[in-house]
């Protein structure tokens, strides 16, 4: 037995080394750079906490955190509600069930950039044209060009695409529920809504947890959608944290400053994920 467990160590070691060299080391390097005035090349000096102090006084950084959270919370909620509804539908005995399952999965295999460009076109030409015909004046202009509405456009695309993957997870969860439970419930006189609240939802609670955590984490790290659709504009109204880090750190030449921003960002995502898991798992046990 002892011998066998050593074999497992040897199996895990290469992956650990690769992970450590290409992932963990750069993370620590980045943290080190956040205490310097490094531009990305050339010489640098250590400047202590200067980057972090400037960070908290920068309106642009604070605004990007505001936008990212607004976007992530709204999208996470929408994705979970919609994908659970779709999963329930696809789990029921309906015609063309397998075809429909395939259709709903398609958005997940499309590249975000392509989806973004397609929606870009829809928002710029297609929707305004329809709106004009129907006389809805508020939609006759591209919503991505409106600082107050652009984030809605991004939410629509992000949710449209993310729903596919979360539906699959919910579907897997729904299939673990034995049908006898529903039969028993209906004998006891429970309606559809009651059996959802008291059987379905509690039994897929662990899937709910993982979906909430994954969706929240993914949306907090939103990047491709914004690059494809607004590039942070109009103005700075859709500048997510990762977009700002990329733009400021590379094109803007403030590598160290944005490295400090990414350290804060990293800590924040870890804290939120841990809190979410703690809170939601406690709920799982309670039920």
């Amino acid at each position: 037995m002892v011998k066998q467990s050593k074999v497992y160590y040897w199996m895990a070691l290469p992956a650990f080394l690769v992970f450590f060299i290409f992932h963990t080391v750069p993370v620590f390097q980045g943290m080190m750079y956040s205490f310097t005035n490094y531009k990305g090349y050339g010489d640098f000096n250590f400047v202590g906490l200067k980057n972090y102090i400037n960070l908290f006084q920068d309106q642009r950084i604070l605004a990007s955190y505001g936008f990212t959270f607004k976007f992530a919370i709204v999208s996470t909620l929408l994705v979970n509600i919609i994908s659970l509804a779709i999963a329930m539908g696809l789990n029921a005995k309906i015609k063309f069930r397998n075809t429909l399952r395939a259709v709903f999965f398609v958005p997940n295999i499309l590249s975000v950039l392509i989806v973004g460009f397609i929606f870009n076109y829809l928002f710029a030409f297609f929707i305004p044209q329809i709106a004009e015909k129907l006389g809805i004046t508020s939609l006759t202009q591209n919503i991505l060009g409106n600082p107050d509405l652009a984030w809605v456009g991004i939410v629509i695309v992000a949710v449209w695409q993310a729903v596919a993957f979360n539906t699959i997870l919910y579907l897997a969860g729904l299939q673990t529920i034995p049908t006898e439970l529903y039969e028993a419930a209906s004998l006891d006189g429970a309606g559809k809504w009651k059996s959802f609240i008291h059987i379905t939802f509690p039994l897929i609670a662990s899937f709910f947890t993982i979906n909430m955590v994954l969706a929240m984490k993914n949306f907090l790290m939103v990047f491709d959608h914004i690059i494809a659709m607004t590039n942070g504009g109009p103005g700075q109204s859709t500048e997510a944290i990762s977009v700002l880090i990329y733009k400021g750190g590379f094109s803007g030449g403030e590598f160290a400053y944005q490295a400090a921003n990414s350290v804060i960002y990293f800590i924040l995502i870890v804290v939120i994920s841990v809190l979410q898991i703690k809170f939601l798992q406690k709920r799982e046990v309670d039920m």
Partner: peptide, 16 residues
């Protein structure tokens, strides 16, 4: 202008 000022977005915002 310093690159990290990202003047283009400021101008766009102003025009709106």
């Amino acid at each position: 202008f310093p690159a990290s000022m990202q003047a283009a977005n400021l101008v766009q915002d102003f025009l709106i």
